[in-house]
Computed example of a mutant assay.
Amino acid sequence: MKKDDFLKLGLDDEIAKKCEAASLEELKEYIPKSRFDEVNSAKKKFESDVKDRDKQLEDLKKSTGNIEDLKKQIESLQKENKEKAEHYELEMQKLRVDTKIESTLSNFGARNIRSVKALLDGVDKFKFDKDGNIEGLEDQIKQIKKSDPYLFANNDTSSVKGVKPVESTAEAKSVDVNNMTYSELVSYMSNNPDFKLNN
């Protein structure tokens, strides 16, 4: 979470800075789920391909017959493997594009990535440029952000105005947040939505 997010939760500036620093430290080793899915998919595909190749080799060992039949069988297997490799490469390209779209939408503050993604034109034709970005993606997102700002969190429409926060309970007032770790503070605040820090 960013400092602004903590300030919106009612933390004072100093504690918000500490919480932001703790949050960034905690996320250093974090691997985005989309990247994990990409690597996991590649691993599963590799394992599946190895099993297929092993089975093909075993079948070839067991087969008896003339050289021409074996050659035809090998050619057939090579063609089948080439088609599988091409199909896999298309699937991985689609996964890389989806991962990039989702991370870009997240960086733009999309509230619901799936909803905003549905508004993008030509997703199936997106291609990467030399810098590893998707051509035209950011322009489309900026247009959507301009036409439908409520879909994004970092707009003025994201905060409700005119609402008075509920007063803290006596028990909540007695809590000393200065001695809490970042995780404890986040947990406490999510379990006590009425809690507000005194400035």
Rank of each mutant, 00 (worst) to 15 (best):
residue 1 M to S: 06
residue 11 L to N: 02
residue 11 L to P: 02
residue 13 D to A: 12
residue 13 D to T: 11
residue 18 K to L: 07
residue 25 E to V: 05
residue 25 E to R: 12
residue 31 I to A: 07
residue 31 I to S: 13
residue 32 P to F: 10
residue 35 R to T: 13
residue 37 D to M: 08
residue 38 E to W: 08
residue 42 A to F: 07
residue 42 A to R: 13
residue 45 K to T: 12
residue 47 E to I: 06
residue 48 S to W: 04
residue 50 V to C: 10
residue 55 K to I: 07
residue 56 Q to Y: 02
residue 59 D to E: 12
residue 64 T to Y: 01
residue 69 D to E: 09
residue 78 Q to W: 02
residue 83 E to I: 11
residue 85 A to T: 04
residue 86 E to P: 00
residue 89 E to W: 12
residue 97 V to M: 04
residue 97 V to H: 03
residue 108 F to N: 07
residue 109 G to L: 05
residue 110 A to I: 09
residue 111 R to Y: 04
residue 113 I to G: 05
residue 118 A to E: 11
residue 118 A to S: 15
residue 119 L to R: 14
residue 122 G to N: 13
residue 123 V to G: 03
residue 124 D to H: 12
residue 128 F to H: 01
residue 129 D to M: 06
residue 130 K to H: 11
residue 131 D to H: 01
residue 137 L to V: 08
residue 137 L to A: 11
residue 138 E to C: 03
residue 142 K to E: 13
residue 144 I to F: 06
residue 152 F to N: 05
residue 152 F to L: 02
residue 158 S to F: 10
residue 159 S to H: 06
residue 164 K to A: 07
residue 164 K to V: 15
residue 165 P to F: 03
residue 166 V to G: 00
residue 168 S to C: 09
residue 169 T to N: 10
residue 169 T to P: 04
residue 170 A to K: 15
residue 170 A to V: 09
residue 176 D to C: 03
residue 177 V to I: 14
residue 177 V to L: 14
residue 181 T to H: 08
residue 182 Y to V: 00
residue 182 Y to W: 13
residue 183 S to T: 06
residue 186 V to I: 15
residue 191 N to Y: 02
